[in-house]
Write a protein that binds this DNA or RNA. Structure first.
Length: 592
RNA sequence: GCACCCGUAGCUCAAUUGGAUAGAGCGCCUGACUACGAAUCAGGAGGUUGGGGGUUCAAGUCCCUCCGGGUGUACCA
C-alpha cells in the first residue's frame, strides 16, 4: 500500500472500487469519506447509511460486509490503516502512527503540499473583480473586508493553480463627477497643486458641493450639465476628470501597498463607456431586452421577484430612461470583454451581501445572452460578506456620522501592536519592533476579518479587530517565531533535510503529525466555497497542536534520533504555517 | 406588502453543508517559567442551539408556524 498524499480522496476511490465488486452494492454507491472527529478516527465514511436506506437493507450488516471486503483486498494495510464499524453503520478509518510518520518523510516541502492543491484549479483563467473603490473618496472601513477577503481568495486560487487576473474595477464614471466638477470650477481649484493630501481635499469638495446643492437646488442643473459635458468628451471637463482619477489611483495605490493587495489591471467603468452600445444592440437583437418606461430592461420570468407580472416591477435595468448607462450596462460589457480579451473560465465578484439581487440578475442575463449568441459562458460567482455594523446595528459610522478611514485603522493597528512588542521585547531596536508591529498589527486585523464566516454581519470593535490573544494572527506568528528560535539555537537551516530521525512516539508528536496532514483537506474545503475562515480554523488548530507539543516534548534533547524527529516536526509545522499565513496575506516573522 | 438572510455559553465566533457526546477564544476559577520564548501550556465552571410543531436511523443544519433583528424592493454604484 502506498502512502496516500490525500487519504480522504484515496479512501473514497478505493472504497468505490471495492464496493463495485461486493455483493449488495451498486454503481450508485458513494462512500462519502470525510475527515472525522478525532475521537473516532481520522476519516469516516457514512455513505453506507444513505445507500442502505434507499435499498431497504440493514446498514450495519452492509457496512460490515464492505469492511470485510476492504480488509481482504490489498488496498488497506493493517499496519498503516485500521477500519472499524460504529453506530448505525459508520465506517471509521484510523491511520496508524507508522502511516503518519511515513507521510511526514514522503511529503516535506511547500511544493509537495501544493502538488495536491494545484489540480484544483489547474490552468483555469480566473478574473477576480477586485474591491472596487469609488474615485474621489477616501477609503473607509467599508473597504477593509473587500481588500482582505479579495486578496486572500486571489492568493488561494493562485496557489491552487489558477491563472489569475486581478482586475481593479474602479468606479470612475459615476454621477458624482458632475457635482465635483461644478464645485471645482466654482472655487477655481487647481488640482495639480493639492499635494499629498489631494484625495482628502477632493473628498471634502464633494461633500461641500453636495451640501451646496441642497441649499441651492439650481446648482443641480449646473452639475448635471457638467456631467453631460464630460460624457460628451468636453475638453476642460475631461482634463479635470483625468486629474481626479489620477489622484484617486495614487491614493489607493498607497493603501494597496500597505494592505498587500496586488492588482494586475485597472480598468474602470469609464473604460467600458464605448462598449455598452454593443450590449444594448445584442440584447435587443436576441429579444432579451425591451423598453419599459423609457428604459431598456431585461425581465426574468422564472424568478418571481424579477418576473414581468410581479406587483412591484423589478427588472434588470440596463439603460436608464435618459439614455445613460448604469451599473448593469458596464457590468454586462465587462463580462463580454473578459471573455473576449482574457478567455475567462471564471469570474469572481467581491461585494457585500446587499448586492445579491444585482448579481443574480447579472448572472441570469449573461447566461441567456451568451447562450443565444453561442459565446462560452464563464463560471460566475458572487463572493459576498456581511456588513460591518455599529453598536446600533446600523452600518458602522463614528459619532459624527463619518466612517472610520481605512488609513486611521491601519495606523491604530500598527500603534497598538508596537506598544505590545515594546512591552514584550524591549531589547529589540526600534526598527525591528516597527517591522514586527507591522506584521502583528495588520495581520491581526486581517485575520479577525478572515477568521469568521464572511457571510455574517459583525459589530465593529477595536478590541475585536486588534486582539492579540487566542485565535488570532499573533498566535500563529508566535508559533512560527518559536520554531525559528529553536533552529537558531542549534544553527540549523529549517529548510534543510533532516536525517536520522526515529519514528513518532509521544501522544503530542502523533497529534501534531495528524494535524499536519490535514492541510490539503483544509485548502480544498476553503476553495470549495471561497470561505477563508476554514483555512484560519485549520491553521489555528495546527498552531495549537504545535504549542501543546512544544510544551510537552523538549526538542533539543541529547538523543540524536529523538532530536532529529522533533526537529523534523518543527520544520514541517513551520512550512505549513508560513504557507498558510502567506495565503491569508500575513507576513511570517523570524522573531517577534 | 413581497423576497432573501440571521438568531448557538456572560461576550465574540466555529460546527467540513443531514452525522456520533454542539466546539474554540475572551472573561471568570486552579495550577505551570533559575525558559528549545509565559504573545504560552495543563485543567475547571459555563448550553433546552429564540419558542413550538413536523420529516428520519440521525436535525444547530431540512419543512411549517410564531417571536426578535437585518437587507433588498428598476433608471446610485
Amino acid at each position: 500500500m502506498e502512502i496516500w498524499f490525500n487519504p480522504s480522496n484515496a479512501i473514497e476511490s478505493a472504497l468505490s472500487t471495492i464496493a463495485a465488486q461486493t455483493d449488495g452494492f451498486g454503481p450508485e454507491f458513494i462512500p462519502g469519506v470525510r475527515p472525522a472527529d478525532p475521537r473516532f478516527g481520522d476519516y469516516q465514511a457514512n455513505g453506507v447509511l444513505a445507500f442502505a436506506k434507499r435499498n431497504q437493507v440493514n446498514p450495519r450488516e452492509l457496512a460490515a460486509r464492505l469492511i470485510a471486503a476492504a480488509e481482504a483486498s490489498d488496498a488497506f494495510d493493517p499496519k498503516l490503516v485500521t477500519l472499524d464499524i460504529a453506530g448505525p453503520g459508520f465506517i471509521n478509518f484510523t491511520l496508524t502512527p507508522a502511516f503518519l510518520w511515513q507521510w511526514q518523510l514522503a511529503y516535506s516541502t511547500k511544493d509537495d503540499y501544493q502538488s495536491g492543491a494545484k489540480a484544483l484549479r489547474d490552468g483555469h483563467k480566473v478574473i477576480i473583480d477586485y474591491p472596487s473603490a469609488n474615485t474621489a473618496k477616501q477609503a473607509h472601513i467599508g473597504h477593509l473586508r473587500p481588500m482582505v477577503i479579495g486578496q486572500a481568495i486571489a492568493r488561494l486560487l493562485d496557489f491552487c493553480g489558477a491563472d489569475m487576473v486581478r482586475d481593479n474595477h474602479i468606479g470612475d464614471w459615476g454621477t458624482n463627477f458632475g457635482t465635483l466638477i461644478m464645485k471645482i470650477k466654482r472655487d477655481a481649484i487647481d488640482l495639480s497643486a493639492l499635494g499629498d493630501d489631494a484625495l482628502i481635499t477632493l473628498d471634502q469638495l464633494y461633500k461641500d458641493g453636495s451640501a451646496l446643492e441642497l441649499e441651492q437646488p439650481e446648482l443641480r442643473t449646473i452639475s448635471r450639465n457638467e456631467l453631460v459635458l464630460l460624457q460628451q468628451g468636453d475638453q476642460v471637463n475631461t482634463a479635470i476628470w483625468e486629474q481626479i482619477v489620477e489622484i484617486s489611483k495614487i491614493a489607493f495605490e498607497k493603501l494597496f501597498v500597505q494592505m498587500g493587495v496586488e492588482v494586475d489591471i485597472t480598468l474602470g467603468e469609464s473604460f467600458y463607456r464605448d462598449k455598452v452600445q454593443r450590449v444594448y444592440d445584442e440584447l435587443t437583437q436576441i429579444g432579451l431586452a425591451e423598453e419599459s418606461d423609457g428604459a431598456l430592461v431585461v425581465w426574468h420570468d422564472e424568478v418571481k421577484k424579477f418576473a414581468r407580472d410581479n406587483e412591484r416591477p423589478y427588472p434588470f435595468n440596463i439603460r436608464k430612461n435618459d439614455g445613460a448607462s448604469n451599473y448593469a450596462s458596464t457590468d454586462l460589457a465587462t463580462v463580454l470583454y473578459r471573455l473576449e480579451e482574457f478567455k475567462a473560465d471564471e469570474i469572481i465578484y467581491l461585494t457585500d451581501a446587499r448586492q445579491q439581487d444585482h448579481f443574480q440578475q447579472l448572472f441570469l442575463t449573461t447566461e441567456k445572452w451568451f447562450k443565444a449568441k453561442g459565446y462560452a459562458l464563464p463560471v460566475m460567482s458572487h463572493v459576498f460578506w456581511g456588513t460591518i455594523l455599529g453598536s446600533d446595528k446600523k452600518p458602522f459610522k463614528t459619532k459624527s456620522g463619518e466612517s472610520i478611514k481605512l488609513q486611521e485603522l491601519l495606523d491604530e493597528a500598527r500603534s497598538r501592536a508596537f506598544d505590545v512588542v515594546t512591552e514584550k521585547n524591549p531589547e529589540l531596536d526600534e526598527a525591528e519592533r516597527r517591522e514586527i508591529a507591522e506584521s502583528v498589527g495588520i495581520g491581526a486585523m486581517k485575520y479577525a476579518d478572515l477568521s469568521s464566516n464572511r457571510t455574517q454581519d459583525y459589530v465593529f470593535s477595536w478590541d475585536r479587530l486588534l486582539s492579540f490573544e487566542g485565535n488570532t494572527a499573533p498566535y500563529l506568528l508566535y508559533a512560527v517565531a518559536r520554531i525559528n528560535s529553536i533552529f537558531r539555537k542549534v544553527s540549523i537551516d529549517p529548510e534543510a533535510p533532516i536525517e536520522g530521525a526515529s519514528p513518532l512516539e509521544t501522544e503530542t508528536e502523533i497529534a501534531l503529525a495528524r494535524k499536519l496532514m490535514g492541510f490539503v483537506s483544509a485548502l480544498e474545503l476553503t476553495l470549495n466555497d471561497l470561505r477563508p475562515h476554514f483555512l484560519c480554523t485549520y491553521l489555528y488548530e495546527l498552531a495549537s497542536a504545535y504549542s501543546s507539543f512544544n510544551a510537552a516534548d523538549k526538542v533539543l534533547v541529547d538523543d540524536d534520533a529523538i532530536k532529529a524527529r522533533r526537529l523534523l516536526l518543527c520544520a514541517r509545522t513551520r512550512t505549513v504555517l508560513q504557507t498558510g499565513l502567506e495565503l491569508l496575506g500575513i507576513q511570517p516573522l523570524e522573531r517577534m
